[in-house]
Amino acid sequence: MFRSKTKLLQLTVTLTACAFLLIPTLMSVLAGVTVNYFKGVSSGLTFKWVLNVWELYADSIFLSLWLAIACLIVTLIIGLPAAYGLARHPGWLSRLLEEFISLPLAVPGLALALALLQLYGTLSGFRTSWTFILVGHVLYTLPFMVRSILAVLAAMDLKTLEEGAASLGASPWQRFRDIVVPNAMPGILAGALTVVTLSIGEFNLTWMLHTPYLKTLPVGLADSYASMRLEIASAYTLVFFVLIVPLLMAMQWASARAQRIAQ
């Protein structure tokens, strides 16, 4: 069916790109379950490395999961009312605020981490606590939560729906609870999955903010790449894939759904 030369060329480029992205991923998966990577798969398959990873890095994995959940809770508490406020008060001030909180999308995490360290690095109680890393994660994921909800809210006639509820006797809080939150659900779900996915994979900020006693999953990965044998590094990467790929797929599904509703 791909008769023409142009199509053949396009197909070649597409397949090459797929190979470039997929082959190293598969190699990493394979290396994680191979007895001796240098000798090849013929040396046999094993779960030994994965178990090794579990012994070495279980704390990091749990810390990352815990951080992701905490990050989700904080971004919901801050982001949901904020998205509503921004949707109800459109104007240059809201635009400015939205632009400002989106800075962490543009400014490299390294720079943000330096800024946080400059201001709070001397507060040792805070600096060495997990909440310091949490602040970095919230900073980075909050704009995704806010925008995801805002997109859904902006697509519906929120003002009239609320006026309708008000004319039936609903107070501002009742309107928020009964009308705004249920109708924003697709955006909340997409935002929540994005926040969890990004938080689990966050490295740039975390590397600067972490302490030797508080290593997250990606920090542990960097650690294993630098100091462990290839099989363990691969097995750890495999564990990460197992966590992140289903989350990514759920996130893409939820975002597509929210976007359909927002149109």
């Binding site: 309708g164 006797g169 009964d178």
Partner: peptide
């Protein structure tokens, strides 16, 4: 404020709550 005036209002766009059934919409007030 509107929520305490006890007026019934039919909006041009109807402003029916998409997250509720017909029955729930009517029962909301």
């Amino acid at each position: 404020p509107v929520e305490r005036r006890q007026v019934g209002m039919v909006f041009q766009s109807y402003a029916l709550f998409p997250n509720m059934s017909v029955r729930a919409n009517i029962g909301y007030g």
